[in-house]
């Protein structure tokens, strides 16, 4: 998958690239409207990530141009501006998603995965993990033919961990995914532990869940099978 990162903050662009590389994305970086347009003329991209405030213009202009030359690419707008008008204009112009700064790279990646899944349809409807099967679009967990009831938040948590199999997810990352951009007055991620405990309890009733690991002091991980 080829990605164009349009971001004038160079350090951030490099960090995004470094993170996405690990998931086998190939990235190009543009720091201005001009270099972005050059890149768009030369290459084909699957993903175009656009920061709206650029030194020589507005990211929405790039979006408008690119939509014509790259109709099949997926667009994610990334910005600190994030007011309602920009958001609506961005989505009207054909952006697939909108990510307000600051965001977790993990969140960016899962948005990209979600867009891919939407676009191509999931090849494998059911994700297998241990002795369980998880249906992401229909939101349920199966043990053999038995449906296991999970609460909404529990399912969100489990599926997020599954989608990032092999990666350690911190409590902060998990809680931000679950709560979205909701502004919470104080930081307290105990409830992530509470949810994980519940998930384990519910699944352990049917089979082992050693694949759901606690990484001491850091967070949780679903082991790569």
């Amino acid at each position: 998958m080829k990605v164009l990162i349009v971001e004038d903050e160079k350090t951030l662009a490099f960090e995004m690239e470094a993170f996405l590389k690990k998931s086998f994305y190939v990235c190009d970086i543009a720091h201005s409207v001009k270099s972005a347009n050059e890149n768009l003329e030369l290459n084909q991209y699957d993903f175009i990530l656009i920061d709206l405030s650029l030194p020589d213009g507005d990211g929405l202009e790039i979006l408008k141009n690119a939509k014509m030359s790259h109709p099949n690419a997926s667009y994610i707008i990334i910005t600190a501006r994030s007011n309602l008008k920009d958001r609506v204009t961005g989505l009207d112009l054909g952006a697939d998603d909108y990510l307000p700064k600051p965001f977790y790279l993990l969140e960016l990646q899962s948005r990209m995965q979600a867009i891919s899944r939407r676009k191509f349809g999931i090849t494998e409807e059911l994700l297998s993990i241990g002795q369980f099967k998880v249906d992401l679009p229909k939101r349920f967990v199966l043990f053999e033919e038995q449906v296991i009831e999970l609460s909404r938040k529990e399912f969100d948590l489990l599926s997020y961990l599954l989608l990032h199999k092999g990666r350690v997810l911190t409590r902060v990352q998990l809680s931000e995914h679950i709560w979205g951009t909701f502004v919470n007055d104080d930081f307290d991620s105990n409830y992530i532990d509470a949810h994980i405990k519940n998930i384990r309890k519910k699944l352990n009733a049917w089979a082992e869940t050693e694949w759901l690991e606690t990484v001491r002091g850091v967070g949780y991980r679903v082991k790569k099978s």
């Binding site: 951030l12 993170f19 977790y104 790279l105 993990l106």
Partner: peptide, 19 residues
């Protein structure tokens, strides 16, 4: 707004470090 970008940078650096 101005604080958001540096925070983004810090946050992504740490995420990459952790990985």
């Amino acid at each position: 707004h101005e604080l958001m970008t540096p925070i983004s940078v810090l946050q992504s650096k740490m995420e990459n470090l952790l990985a």
